[in-house]
Computed example of a mutant assay.
Amino acid sequence: MPLSHPPLDRLPIRRLTSDDLLACADLSENRGWLREERKWGLLLTAGVGYGIDDPAGKGLLTACVVTSYGPGLAAIGMVLVAEAYERRGVGRRLMRHVLAEAGDTPLSLYATSNGQPLYEQLGFTSAGRSEMLRGRFTPTEPAPERTVRAATAEDLRPVLRLDQEIFGADRTHLITRLPAFADHVRVAEEDGEITGFGALWPNMDTHVIGPLIARDPGTAQALVASLAAATDRPLRTDVDTRHTSLLTWLKSNGLDQIATTTIMIRSLPDLPGDWSRRFAPLTVAAG
């Protein structure tokens, strides 16, 4: 006699831990995404994962991660539903659970075109667009001259101050993980003052540039050029479409748009911080 399973709307939603990393990567692969185990590892330790186990014992049937930045903001990312369970309400159920857990905390996320209608139904509104770029960096058009160097331990405090000012919330729990998570962290400075920083971290066969915080587009370009010179892998990054000069420069130097996403917010008039100096997220999954 075949085993019977509870209805999908009665399957328990549980907190995920770092022990679920491979199951999360398997779920990514199931949906045609990259496994991105390194990114999952960061998100599951710096944030809170939620998931529903497949009653047939085949890993996770749905999952997502929430990265909190205090009472003023949290970011939702990596919302996935296994192919066998799509369009059966489990993604909506998981999101409603996450919204209930968040309470009054404002939320942000980067939505694909497939996910955007659901998020709109759940009260999210569009706050902008982002382009994902990928390619081998070929320095055809040089970056403006800036002083860029490897970050040191002494840079941590000024970097955290600058990041909180520009991001608009406290990302200490993520920024302090960068030296171990990223292969390279660079800072830009002028007259002894740090004017920007960026990180280069490995993800499958690419290196991702993010976060990228800078005083102006020229400083952002100088940071990218310095980070790009440190790798022979293709680069990936996500850039707010309002940064037209950086996007044009990146495309002239070998990167191409491979996807677009909609930046969405809930219970907020707009994202906090200063978008004009916030060029790329660490990862869109963490806001």
Rank of each mutant, 00 (worst) to 15 (best):
H207A: 10
T17D: 12
A82I: 04
A180D: 15
D19I: 00
F181V: 09
A56H: 13
N30A: 11
L250P: 11
L44P: 13
S130F: 13
E189N: 07
S130V: 15
N114E: 15
R96C: 05
I263T: 14
D163K: 04
T17Q: 06
E190A: 12
A286W: 05
T262P: 12
M78W: 00
V208G: 07
L160M: 07
P269W: 04
P202K: 10
K251N: 11
L99S: 00
A46W: 09
H97K: 04
N30Y: 03
S126G: 10
I265L: 11
L133I: 11
R92M: 05
E101V: 15
G254L: 10
A153E: 15
I209W: 11
P179V: 03
A150Y: 01
R278S: 07
G41L: 11
T241P: 03
T231E: 06
I166G: 01
M264E: 09
L282K: 02
A143Y: 11
R177G: 11
D238Q: 13
T283M: 06
R233N: 14
D205W: 10
L235S: 08
G218M: 01
R236D: 10
V239I: 15
L200Q: 03
L11M: 06
T45W: 00
R233H: 15
R15I: 09
A169F: 07
E83N: 12
L246K: 10
T147M: 02
D53I: 07
P211C: 00
T260P: 03
D256S: 15
H207K: 07
D26T: 14
R136K: 12
V187W: 08
P158G: 06
R96V: 04
R277L: 08
A188M: 01
K251P: 04
G196V: 05
L223H: 11
Y50E: 02
T176K: 13
A111N: 08
A84D: 12
T125C: 09
T195N: 01
A74E: 07
L223I: 15
E83T: 14
E101Y: 07
G196S: 05
I52R: 00
T152F: 00
E154N: 12
W201G: 08
S226V: 08
P142D: 04
I263P: 01
G273Q: 00
A199L: 07
P144N: 00
W249P: 14
R242V: 14
Y85A: 03
A285R: 08
D155A: 10
L255T: 11
L174C: 03
T237L: 15
G91A: 05
A23H: 12
E86T: 14
G49L: 01
L282D: 05
T262D: 08
E37M: 08
V284E: 13
T147A: 07
F124W: 09
S130P: 01
G41E: 13
P12I: 03
G89A: 04
R278H: 13
E36I: 14
W275P: 15
I13V: 13
T17A: 10
Q121N: 07
A182G: 12
R161N: 09
E29M: 01
V90T: 14
T67V: 15
I52T: 10
G198F: 04
D163F: 05
L223M: 10
V79D: 05
V65Y: 07
R88G: 06
S226G: 14
A229N: 05
I258C: 08
R177N: 09
P217N: 06
T262I: 14
D9I: 00
Q116L: 13
E190I: 01
L118K: 06
I76Y: 01
R31D: 12
T260M: 08
L246M: 12
